[in-house]
Design a protein around this nucleic acid. Structure first.
Lengths: 227, 227
DNA sequence: ACAAAAGTGTTGAGAGTACACCCATGC
DNA sequence: GCATGGGTGTACTCTCAACACTTTTGT
């Protein structure tokens, strides 16, 4: 058995999304070593023999960003033989949603250099990372439409306008304010609840703050193909 | 890099579903070697250094069943350190839908013994295969509700009653005949088309045969969480 | 003749979508 | 006082879901 495994290395790659400055951003690191030295890449690293693959993803995330309590989901395993010029490397990709409040301003010191980039303006990436990132983005948009993962990108307390804006940024389309609010406030079972607090300071009336309910059912029943 | 990889082996496990005898069945093989010697398991094997992970899954499928042209989809990667008592083995699980016509009556000669089992009556399984199978079944049901993968389990030409029965078996609920047919026949863009042929021989009127359109959009737009 | 399966429409309820104005507050 | 943003209701359309009978054919 051991000799069959000898030539395959296992890594994790962690695509980290956050909302900032009105755009959806992802963290990239500049590679300090060959191959692709100096190219931007998705943060990641080797899975250690004694840790689960999920744990490896969380460890890499923490090392790169200091983030711990986040939404993390396994995305896909990429296993083409030639995807890494060094040899046979199979990677398990994950994606992470970092809330605005958590999102570390700077990356950790593991990487030579790190940068948050808007997903609309990405540099050339190392390995097959461009297609991995494209896949992650597709999945994020998809999930956002029929589950409540969007809340993971917001601080614990948020106004309805902030929530709507987050959805609009990610989906790339505008939504109707009244319909949006009605759907959210009249959902049964409820999805969000009032905190009783208000956001003030901005121009205009104060805005009610809400929080996501822990017991919320985070999924809409999909429209079925057949009745 | 090599030493980090040394102790991790990579396998594929392939959950194969088919419809037969009015039930949803999956193929299990009896293990000839320790560990779990004599226990039933999901078919699978090691990924070779020169093949992609997808290719390994297709190769294992072919070796176990002789099947080639099937619907194959990557399911999830299971990477707990202790899931295999021999050492560190990470497995990439796939699921396959075998059409009625294709489904090999017997498994290949790679395994000591193989058996199609209804998913409602499974024996104890080796490793963490019970939970992998449960996950595969959940995903199959889920996909079936909002995509057209169900056609992959049927022969190329089928009657609407056969299609409806297939859905009822997998979902475990009965569907309304008129609503089912209307949705399917009036879908725009169309999903199926008439072959012009009929199924005869059974008691009752002859039944129109249909085929799945290659250009069909296999997905319903999910009901969105927000308008 | 009888049992089994194929095929075919209508209606009522609920969800989805489009749309515009007033008021509070900071500057 | 004016620009910005918060908050609110209604009417129309469309999709969904429930429901029963007639006809054909094999035995």
């Amino acid at each position: 058995m051991a000799d069959l495994a000898l030539n395959i290395a296992l890594t994790v790659d962690v695509i980290i999304f956050r909302l900032r400055e009105g755009e959806l951003q992802t963290l990239l690191i500049k590679r300090g070593l060959a191959p692709y030295k100096g190219r931007w890449a998705i943060p990641g690293g080797f899975v250690r023999p004694d840790e689960s693959v999920d744990a490896a993803a969380r460890r890499e995330l923490f090392e790169e960003t200091g983030l711990k309590e986040v939404y993390l989901e396994q995305l896909y395993t990429f296993g083409e033989p030639k995807r890494d010029p060094r040899g046979r490397v199979v990677t398990v990709a994950y994606f992470v949603l970092a809330a605005i409040a958590q999102a570390a301003p700077q990356a950790g010191d593991d990487a030579a250099e790190a940068q948050w980039r808007p997903i609309t303006d990405l540099p050339p990436l190392a390995f097959d990372h461009a297609s991995i990132l494209a896949y992650a983005l597709k999945r994020l948009r998809y999930k956002l439409e029929y589950t409540a993962v969007g809340f993971e990108l917001l601080p614990e307390e948020f106004t309805l306008t902030e929530l709507q804006t987050a959805y609009e940024i990610i989906l790339g389309e505008t939504l109707d304010k009244r319909n949006f609010r009605r759907r959210l406030l009249e959902a049964d079972p409820p999805i969000i609840e009032e905190t009783g607090k208000y956001r003030t300071g901005q121009v205009g009336p104060r805005a009610q703050l809400y929080r996501y309910r822990d017991d919320a059912v985070a999924e809409v029943r999909a429209r079925r193909l057949f009745p």
